[in-house]
Amino acid sequence: MEKGVVISGFGGQGVMLAGELLAETGKEEGKFVTFLPSYGPEMRGGTANCHVIISDEEIASPIIDHPEAAIILNLPSLDKYEPLMKEDGLIIINKSIVPKEVKRTDVKILQVKAQEVARDLGNEKTMNLILLAAYVEIEKPVSIEGLKKALRTFLTGRKETLIEVNEKAINKGIEIAREFLGVK
């Protein structure tokens, strides 16, 4: 098993945190993981992105040329990654600020009004976790339990108060994913 995902958006949307959390979860579950933040020319064009790979075997290139999955948080990221997606790949889109429709017909698309959903949960900033959890539930690179456990190691000290709302966000992401998969 080797699963890779690109998470891409504006700085401040929690792109890196989501990627790091996923990588940390993979590590805790004994997997090989790589987390590569935007580098070189990638840093231009209004996107901050990271490539996360989780694998049972040693990972060769940490760079994802053609994502099999992408979590897209803003419009420039969609423009950038839509053409690069693997056939049959999964694009999870933050519909709140990406109203544009995906032109490609050979990819799976999950659109979520993530910001609104997060706001309803009580903290708009958790939208990255809603989408990350949806990805994890669909692609299963790591377990949801592992993700929740890793979350607790990230939110310590003063941030401890944020655990509850973030766990809610994860649960919401699972719900959305199950709906998408047609599972009850």
């Binding site: 590590k27 090989f32 993981v33 790589t34 987390f35 590569l36 933040p37 580098y39 070189g40 940490p62």
Partner: peptide
């Protein structure tokens, strides 16, 4: 190089 420097691995 910067790529090895910026990336995270266990």
């Amino acid at each position: 190089d910067g790529l090895l420097g910026q990336m995270m691995e266990p």
